[in-house]
């Protein structure tokens, strides 16, 4: 569309036109980035993910206790106390304890007693959660912080 001499390469009007298009695209991209930033809250609205699960003595040995109101299990082995998330790593259903470990009701994922995957579509074993001791002596589990499987809190 340029009225400039075609022999001169990019003409003055072409350059201005390109600059205008560039400015338009840049502002559009900025607006889009802003629009996609909005739906990602910097603070999640849920209540605290930390939950007190009682003093170390109350944690059952070699069996699981489901923490009331939370999707997690606590237990005590020889190495110490640990917590396992009950949320299936496949699509987020809540697993149920069975004699051999855990079963997921939604798509049949199976885990052993330590949360390791033994069958079904789950991509990895159940998450282990961080256990800490609160100043008042009770144990606190943080649902928001996973730890490598096999991490125990020595009592």
């Amino acid at each position: 569309m340029s009225v400039d001499d075609p022999g001169k390469g990019v003409g003055r009007r072409d350059l201005l036109s390109l600059a205008a298009w560039g400015a338009f695209c840049a502002s559009l991209a900025t607006a889009l980035v802003g629009a996609f930033r909005l739906p990602n809250p910097s603070v999640f609205p849920e209540p605290s993910l930390k939950v007190k699960v009682g003093p170390p003595g109350s944690i059952p040995e070699l069996e699981y206790r489901k923490v009331a109101g939370r999707n997690l299990f606590v237990s005590r082995g020889e190495e110490g106390v640990f917590a396992i998330s009950a949320v299936c790593t496949h699509l987020g259903c809540v697993v149920a304890p069975v004699p051999s470990g855990f079963h997921c009701p939604c798509h049949g994922s199976r885990f052993d007693a330590l949360g390791r995957i033994t069958g079904g579509p789950a991509p990895r074993g159940l998450d282990w959660l961080k256990v800490a001791k609160a100043p008042d002596g009770e144990l606190v589990v943080d649902e928001g912080e996973t730890v490598p499987p096999g991490t125990y809190l020595k009592i």
């Binding site: 109101g69 939370r70 999707n71 496949h90 699509l91 259903c93 809540v94 009701p105 939604c106 798509h107 049949g108 079904g120 579509p121 991509p123």
Partner: peptide
């Protein structure tokens, strides 16, 4: 109830074909 999943938890019928292949890999 976020603590007790439906068993089985099924999507509406037109997504159940998808759910069937999801049960192999999400």
């Amino acid at each position: 109830n976020p603590l007790v999943p439906e068993n089985p938890a099924k999507a509406p019928w037109y997504f159940l074909g998808l759910q069937e292949i999801v049960s192999f890999s999400a």
